[in-house]
Amino acid sequence: MNADDIFKPYLMKIERVTEETPDVKTLRLVFLDEQEGKDFTFRTGQFGEYSVFGEGECTFCIASPPTRQGYIECTFRKAGRVTSALADLEAGETIGFRGPYGNVFPVADWEGKNLLFIAGGIALPPMRSVIWNILDRRDRYREITIVYGARTVADLVYKPELDEWAGRSDIQLITTVDPGGETPEWKGKIGFVPAVLDKASPSSRDTVAVVCGPPVMIKFTFPVLARLGFAPENIFTTLENRMKCGVGKCGRCNVGKLFVCKDGPVFTFAQLQQMPQEY
């Protein structure tokens, strides 16, 4: 983060634009100032404020892992004014980035454990950072299971990476689409993520679960994880409250006395149980 001015963004060049779905794009960004790029560090789970000058800022996680340096990536759905402007940009253009903000997934604490990742729709990006972080240090972790679902086949993001994970023998990948969202060629599951997880029934033994998805998916996934024997402190998720400043001042992301931008976005289910239902 820019130490002298919390609102001054880094200038970033769009190096590559990837169309993930008709309305979801991934941007690979590199620092225009080489020294800023060298000095920049972040950890998995953190987020930033991305800006199109003249349109405004919007908040996304950093979707690339800190184990891959020299660039950061963000993945977003074209929805409002800023994301629409962002989606119209091409490689070579300049945007602003403030960050990294927020806390992190404690990946060092998870060494020696099994990991279960559960993601829905556009919430795979925050998890992709941690998944690649883990995969880049694969020998430090035991079994890795990924359950990923989207409304339709077209809505699945990172398709080449899903193919890569599906082809690896050291990952168990389960993909699913909501009923009606399948295509004739679809070889994955059909069903909502909580139901597919319930059926797969992965073991909770020595396992940490990471859940990212729309609020409704998270709501129905927690009981399944509880049934599978996951302790609340071994279930991690991220909250995605609306933010403007990213540094605990603008007043809109708080859940009770906690700031999602400072105390989160990563929380355990045990923490959520102690927090007001305001997210």
Partner: peptide, 26 residues
């Protein structure tokens, strides 16, 4: 507060008063 851009690609980034009383706030 809110943060908004004004004036197009050669413009300003502004901080403006906001309120937790508004539904749009969150």
């Amino acid at each position: 507060f809110d943060i908004q851009d004004e004036g197009g690609a050669s413009g300003k980034r502004l901080r403006c008063w906001d309120s937790c009383g508004f539904g749009l706030f969150t």
